[in-house]
Design a protein around this nucleic acid. Sequence first.
DNA 1: TAAAATGTTTAGATTTGTCTAACTTTTATT
DNA 2: AATAAAAGTTAGACAAATCTAAACATTTTA
Lengths: 219, 219
Amino acid sequence: MNLTVAEENYIKSIYKLEEGAEAVTTTGLAYELDTKPASVTDMAKKLKEKKLIDYEKYQGINLTAEGKKAALHIIRRHRLWECFLVDKLAFSWEEVHELAEELEHVRSEKLIIRLSDFLGNPTIDPHGDPIPDAQGKLGKQRAQISLDQARTKRLEVTAVSDKSAALLEFLNAKGIRLGTQLEVIERYEFDNSIEIKIRNQPAFTISEQVSKNIMVRPL
Amino acid sequence: MNLTVAEENYIKSIYKLEEGAEAVTTTGLAYELDTKPASVTDMAKKLKEKKLIDYEKYQGINLTAEGKKAALHIIRRHRLWECFLVDKLAFSWEEVHELAEELEHVRSEKLIIRLSDFLGNPTIDPHGDPIPDAQGKLGKQRAQISLDQARTKRLEVTAVSDKSAALLEFLNAKGIRLGTQLEVIERYEFDNSIEIKIRNQPAFTISEQVSKNIMVRPL
DNA sequence: TAAAATGTTTAGATTTGTCTAACTTTTATT
DNA sequence: AATAAAAGTTAGACAAATCTAAACATTTTA
Ligand SMILES: [Mn+2]
Ligand SMILES: [Mn+2]
Ligand SMILES: [Mn+2]
Ligand SMILES: [Mn+2]
């Protein structure tokens, strides 16, 4: 199946939205891809034609098994390139998503196998996301929940959901990265903000919006 | 100046044909890019509009100073990626041109600077071609001529002009690579074939076509 | 449950890059 | 110089990806 760059981007976004449960809507996908609903409808017809999605007018979009497999391969390429950029070229985690967004479209089985080997076959990317293997299979993920839902005090950061430079730079400033161990000092009901403390540093407060995008596991 | 992938490929091909002296013709460029003369005429109008080429109907195509600068930046990216693929991912020289043909279009100043650093700022690529620096400047090249024109007996291979897998695989089979030292045993006037010898191995004959694509320097 | 609001699709355009077929210009040959 | 051949251009078409504006469908809300 030979996909265009646009088709690959759509497939990947559909996969992402499907992961976050519920139906993938025209408008939701348009928002995710920073395009217009009309464009999504057009592309939906093409992807249906190629049997990569199930789609009926007004009924939302879902990846077929084949579409899901394609998505995982694109995600694999994306995340391996991110590892390369961070591990080998010393980019920081807020810079790599955009570059990987382009590099992921260079299609060569051999290139990706070699790249993965070169990187030591990593299983998670710089944002804590799992990297599918060459067959498109995702390994067992460690149990993780978002910080706003965690109910224990001592936690370790395992991933970030939002890859925007805005969030990642905020986390840099606060000293929060993958593997950071933190303690919840207080949860404020009023706005669901959370006061946290890292090691011996002074405690600080983060908004609900930030806490929803930090994935953690109990220590 | 923001160029499309197609525009970048055209600019690079024009540069290549210009290097080989004489005028760049519509047909020649179409052949180089594996497209049709009509398409070249269309693109010529666009590139002229963007002031990257000088072009008048029926008068051939030439890069402007700006076009030349753009070409050198694309060539820099292409050759650095080739180095990466060969030096870090263990690809062989006949496999990398096609991959670099895609990777070269990922535009990020920072990426290329980091990549170059990571590779130790190489100055020649796996085919012996010089790599422009970050300003698009080409260093002084060592004097080299094609094997068919060389008039001394003992020579060192410095580059290959043709990057097709067909030629490169032939050279692999014959044990000819960059830096290989060879001795001309005989030149046959009839078909301009050349008998050569590498080290203590038995001599063999190569066609004029091959010899035209091997660049050498006298030892 | 009817009206309003929201979400989705269609129709028709636009941009980019390509093509074929017909035509024009330039160059080579008699 | 006239003609033939080769090279180059134009006209018109098409596919991919996008858009705006208008129409249509579904969902919400009063
Ligand atoms: Mn992408
Ligand atoms: Mn990532
Ligand atoms: Mn290219
Ligand atoms: Mn090369």
